[in-house]
Amino acid sequence: SPISQSQFIPLGEILCLAISAMNSARKPVTQEALMEHLTTCFPGVPTPSQEILRHTLNTLVRERKIYPTPDGYFIVTP
């Protein structure tokens, strides 16, 4: 029987999409709110552990794709 394939999207890209959507909705993007958003909006995607989430967010900050503030994470705009 054929095996169904799913699209692979890197966690960093999913986080950027989620942060962008939450920023547009003016929702604060904390790590907890981000986990909740991922569970709700990406039900088929396994939720990352806190450690993996933190590591991926730090990587995105180093890559200058997002930036942290006391009010949460935001997408870097050119």
Rank of each mutant, 00 (worst) to 15 (best):
M22Q: 03
I9Y: 07
E51D: 14
P28N: 11
E36C: 08
T30V: 10
T47V: 15
P2M: 13
Y67S: 12
P70A: 13
G44D: 15
L60T: 00
E51H: 14
R54Q: 15
E51C: 06
P78R: 14
L15P: 00
S49H: 03
P78F: 02
I66P: 00
L34R: 00
S49T: 04
I9H: 03
T30M: 06
K65V: 12
E51G: 06
P2E: 04
P46W: 04
E32L: 06
E32A: 12
T69M: 05
E51P: 13
Y67M: 15
Q5S: 12
T39N: 14
A33I: 02
A25I: 09
I3S: 12
E36N: 14
V29E: 00
S6R: 08
S1G: 03
P2T: 09
L53Y: 06
P10A: 11
Q7V: 08
T39V: 15
G72I: 01
E36R: 12
T39E: 05
Q31D: 08
C41D: 09
Q31V: 11
I75D: 05
E32I: 08
L11A: 03
L38K: 01
R62N: 01
E32W: 05
I3P: 06
S49M: 01
P46H: 05
G72H: 02
V76C: 14
G72R: 02
R26V: 07
Q5P: 05
A21C: 05
S4A: 07
V29G: 01
I3G: 09
L17E: 14
V76Q: 12
F42P: 09
R62D: 09
E51Y: 04
T77I: 03
F74C: 10
L15G: 00
Q5G: 06
Q7F: 08
L53N: 00
I3K: 10
T40V: 11
P46A: 07
F42Y: 03
R26C: 06
H55F: 09
R54M: 12
L11R: 01
T59G: 13
F8T: 07
Q7N: 11
P43Y: 06
R64E: 15
A18T: 07
F42D: 15
C41G: 13
G44Q: 09
N23M: 03
N58G: 12
I19H: 00
Q50D: 15
T40P: 01
K65M: 04
G72V: 01
G12A: 02
F42M: 14
H37D: 03
L17Q: 15
I19Y: 00
L60F: 02
P2W: 06
P46L: 05
R64H: 14
G72Y: 01
R54E: 13
I75G: 10
L53F: 06
C16T: 11
P10H: 06
N23D: 08
H55K: 13
A21L: 02
A18S: 04
E51I: 01
T77E: 14
E32S: 10
S24P: 02
N23R: 05
S1Y: 06
A18D: 00
I66G: 00
I75L: 11
R26P: 04
A25N: 08
L38Q: 00
C16M: 10
F74Q: 12
C41A: 13
R54A: 13
P48M: 07
D71N: 11
G72W: 01
L17K: 14
L57Q: 00
F42L: 07
S20C: 09
V29Y: 01
L57W: 03
Y67I: 13
T30R: 07
I14V: 10
Q7R: 11
Q7L: 07
S6N: 10
K65N: 01
S20I: 02
P2L: 14
P43E: 12
Q7E: 13
R26E: 11
S4I: 07
C41I: 05
S20D: 06
T40M: 06
Q50L: 12
E13S: 10
S4Y: 08
I3D: 12
A33P: 02
Y67C: 14
E51W: 05
A18K: 02
A25L: 11
Q5H: 06
N23S: 06
P68H: 14
S24Y: 07
M22T: 01
V29N: 00
L11E: 02
F74N: 02
Y67Q: 11
A25T: 04
M22F: 04
R62C: 09
Q7A: 14
L17G: 11
L60R: 00
R26K: 13
S24G: 12
P10G: 10
L57Y: 00
P28Q: 15
L53R: 00
F8M: 06
C16N: 07
Q50C: 08
H55G: 15
G44C: 09
L34F: 01
Y67G: 09
L34T: 01
H55D: 15
M22C: 06
N58A: 14
H37K: 04
P46S: 05
T59N: 07
K65W: 03
P46E: 08
S1K: 01
M35Q: 08
V76N: 14
P78S: 10
T30P: 01
I14P: 10
A25D: 13
M35C: 10
P28S: 07
L53T: 14
I3F: 03
T59P: 00
P2A: 07
N58L: 11
L15D: 01
H55E: 14
T69H: 08
R62H: 09
P78C: 15
R64G: 14
P10M: 14
L34Q: 00
Q50W: 07
S20W: 01
I14D: 03
L38F: 13
V76W: 11
S6V: 04
H55M: 07
I75F: 06
L11P: 02
S20G: 10
I14N: 02
P70H: 05
G44M: 11
G44E: 13
T30N: 02
V45A: 07
P2D: 15
R26I: 04
V61C: 14
S6T: 07
T47Y: 05
E36W: 04
V45N: 03
K27L: 06
N58H: 13
R54D: 02
S4Q: 11
P2F: 15
L38C: 02
T47P: 04
Q31I: 08
Y67R: 13
P70K: 14
T59A: 13
Y67L: 10
P46Y: 02
F42A: 09
K27V: 07
R26Y: 03
T30Q: 13
P68G: 12
L57C: 04
T30A: 04
E13K: 10
N23A: 05
L38G: 00
Y67H: 12
T69C: 08
I9G: 13
T30S: 12
S1V: 02
L15S: 03
S20A: 06
Q5T: 14
P46G: 05
L57S: 00
T39C: 10
I3W: 01
T30F: 08
A33V: 05
S6K: 05
I75K: 03
V29S: 08
T40Q: 13
A25G: 04
Y73K: 07
K65G: 01
L15N: 01
E63A: 11
G72L: 01
L60H: 01
A18W: 01
E36I: 08
L57T: 04
T47Q: 08
S6I: 05
T40R: 13
E36P: 01
I75E: 13
G44W: 06
I14F: 03
V29R: 00
F74R: 14
S49V: 01
N58W: 07
A18G: 07
Q5M: 11
V45P: 04
P48I: 11
V45S: 06
T47R: 11
M22N: 02
T39Y: 13
K27N: 05
P46D: 07
G44N: 13
T56K: 09
T40E: 09
S20T: 12
I52K: 10
K65R: 10
T30D: 08
S6L: 05
G72F: 01
S49N: 04
C16I: 12
I52L: 09
P46N: 05
T40H: 03
A21T: 07
T47F: 02
A25F: 07
K27R: 09
R64P: 00
G44H: 11
M35A: 13
Q7H: 06
T69P: 01
T77S: 13
Y73E: 07
T69R: 11
V61H: 06
A25P: 02
V61P: 00
M35W: 06
A33N: 15
S20Y: 04
P10D: 05
P28G: 05
F8P: 07
